[in-house]
Write a protein that binds this DNA or RNA. Sequence first.
DNA 1: ATGAAAGCGCTAACAC
DNA 2: GTGTTAGCGCTTTCAT
Lengths: 334, 334
Amino acid sequence: MTNIRKVAELAGVSVATVSRTLRSPDVVSPATRDKVLQAVNEAGYKPNLMAVRFRSRRTHNLVVLVPTIANTFFARVISGIQEAAQERGYGVLLCNTNGHEETEATYASLVTTRQADGVIQLRAYNPFPEDADSDGTPLPMVNACEVLDDAPCPTVKLDNRAAARLLTEHLLALGHRRIGMIKGPRRSPLTRDRVAGYRDALEAAGIALDESLICPGDFTPRSGYEAAGTLIARAEPPTAIFCESDEMAIGAISCLKQAGLAIPGDISVAGFDDIDFASYSDPPLTTIAQPAEAFGKQAVAMLIDVLERRHQGEPHRMLPHELVIRGSTGEPAT
Amino acid sequence: MTNIRKVAELAGVSVATVSRTLRSPDVVSPATRDKVLQAVNEAGYKPNLMAVRFRSRRTHNLVVLVPTIANTFFARVISGIQEAAQERGYGVLLCNTNGHEETEATYASLVTTRQADGVIQLRAYNPFPEDADSDGTPLPMVNACEVLDDAPCPTVKLDNRAAARLLTEHLLALGHRRIGMIKGPRRSPLTRDRVAGYRDALEAAGIALDESLICPGDFTPRSGYEAAGTLIARAEPPTAIFCESDEMAIGAISCLKQAGLAIPGDISVAGFDDIDFASYSDPPLTTIAQPAEAFGKQAVAMLIDVLERRHQGEPHRMLPHELVIRGSTGEPAT
DNA sequence: ATGAAAGCGCTAACAC
DNA sequence: GTGTTAGCGCTTTCAT
C-alpha cells in the first residue's frame, strides 16, 4: 500500500511536506512541490480518504432517506441530489426505507456513527431521537418534498395547497361540479395540504364537499387503478378525478378505459408531478409540474450550509409549481 | 464526543476490554461484560465507524455506477442492490454517470481512494485503468445488466439474444413479416445481442432482414416516440415494432396513436423490461419481463463474495426472462 | 481474562 | 519553507 510516508521517502522530504503539497500547494516552495508531485506520480499515490476523513471528522457523505426509489418522481429528486452533491464533493448514500420508521432510525444512526455528515429526508418523519437537537447544535438534516409541519430543520417543498387549489380551479372552470380525488396515504401532511387546496377551491366555488368522492391511494398506478374503480361505482360518480400523483392518474385512466369511459369525454383525469410518462399517456395528462431535480439540488445546498455552519439563511423554501394543461381534462358531458 | 476511552473510564476497565466486549463478547468475563455494557448505555456510546473502518481497512460501502437513475428499470435494480447490501451490512453509494466515462473513472477511484470497497457497474464499460488487475488481485467489481463481452469480473445478465428471439418469434407467430425494431444506443452489447436475437428469429423464419426497419433510440420515451415516427414514414412501414425498452414502447405508442393508427389493429408494439407502467399502458404492453431486483441482489452477492475472498463460484450468471403477452400485439391487418 | 502499547494514514500545531 | 511530533478512535498483538 503506497502511503504518504513512501512518497515522502521517495521525494526526500517529510510527510508533512507531502501533505502540504497536496492540501495547500502555495505554501511550499516550487522546487519542493515539483519533487513531491513527481514522487506522487511515480508512486501512483492516492491519499487514503478514509484516513483523511477520519482525521478531519467529516465523511463527506450525505444519506438520503427515500420511501421508495422505484417511484419516478423520487428518482428525479435523487438525480438532483446526486448531481449537486457530486459538485460539492459529497457522496450520496442511498437508503430505501419503504416507509419503515425503524429502518429510518437505523439510517439516521449513520450520522451518529459517523458514516455520513447529514441526512436528506424525503418523508415527513424525524428519524432522530426526540432530544437530538436539545444540545443547541442544529440537526444535520433537511426535510424535502414531504415536509413535517414543525420540522426541526430546514425544509424545501411545494406549496401543495396552492397547487391543488389551482388544479381544482382548472377543473371547476371547465364546468365540473362533482370532482373526485384520489389522495395519498392518510397520515401524510402532503396529502392533507392537497386536500385542503381542493376544499379551498370547492368552497370558493360554493360547492359542498362530498367526502365519499375522496379515496386514499399510495401513489402507485395500482392504487390509482383501484381507487378509480371505487369512485365510478358510487351512486353519483364524479365527472372528473384529481389524482395526487401521475402514477395514480395513469392507473386510474387504465381502469376508466376498461370500464368503457372516454377521457376526457366521459370523465376528466388530472395528475400531479409531471413525470416523463405524463406526456406519453393517452390522452396526455393534465398535471401540476414540480421541479423534482431542483428539490434535490436545493436540499443539498441547504444541508451543506448547515453542515459547514454557513449562515442559516431562510430555512424554509417553497419551490414553484406550474399547471400543465394537456388532453386528459375537458368539459363534462352534458 | 463520547469515545471508547470515556466508556473504559466509566466502567473502570481498559479500552481494550471495551473493544473486546463489543466485538467478541464471549471472550470477556460475564461480570466485566455487564459492567462495560452498562457503561456503554450510560454514556450513550456509539463506536465511531470511521475509526473502525479506517483501522480495519474496509469501508463497507459499495458504489453503484448507473447511467441514469431516472429510468424505471434501473431504479428497480438499485432497489434490489440497496436491499441486499443493507442485509449484508453494506452501504450503497449512488453514482449517476450519465454515461460519461470520465465520470465513471472518477467514481471507480472511490475504490482506490478507499471510500468504497467495490463497484457494481450497470453499463458495459470498465471504469478501472487497463492494468488494474495485473497484480493478480481480482478487480473489486461486478458488471450487471449491460455486460462487457470480456468483462474482467463476475457478471449477471439476461440472455438478451434468446429473449429478443422469443419476442420476435411471438410477433412472427402472429403473422407479422415486416417487423421494425427500435434498438438502443449503437455501441451497447445489450443492443447488439437483442438485434442478434431478432435476426435469429427472422432468419429461422426465412425472412430477409431489412436494415431500414431498425432504428436506434436511447431507451427514453422521447426517443421511442421519434423512432416510431421514422419507421412509419418508411415507404413500406412495419406491421409490428419491437422496442428494446418499455419506455420507448410507450413513447412509440403515443406517436402511432397520434398518427391515427390503432394498436394492435393497425400495428403491433412490444416492449422490453416489464416496468410497472407496462400493465397500465393502453393497450397493455406485450413485453419481456426481467427480474430487475434480482439483478441487484445477485450483483451484491457476487461482489461481496469477491470482496470477502469467498469461493469465486461461477462468475457469470444469466437470470431468466419471460415473455409476457398483453394487448399491444395482435395479428397484422390483412 | 485483562491491560499496555503499537500502530492504521493522515493533518496540524509547533519548532526551527 | 520544512521537519518533528502528537494525536484522531479504534483494534490487536503481546504480556501478564
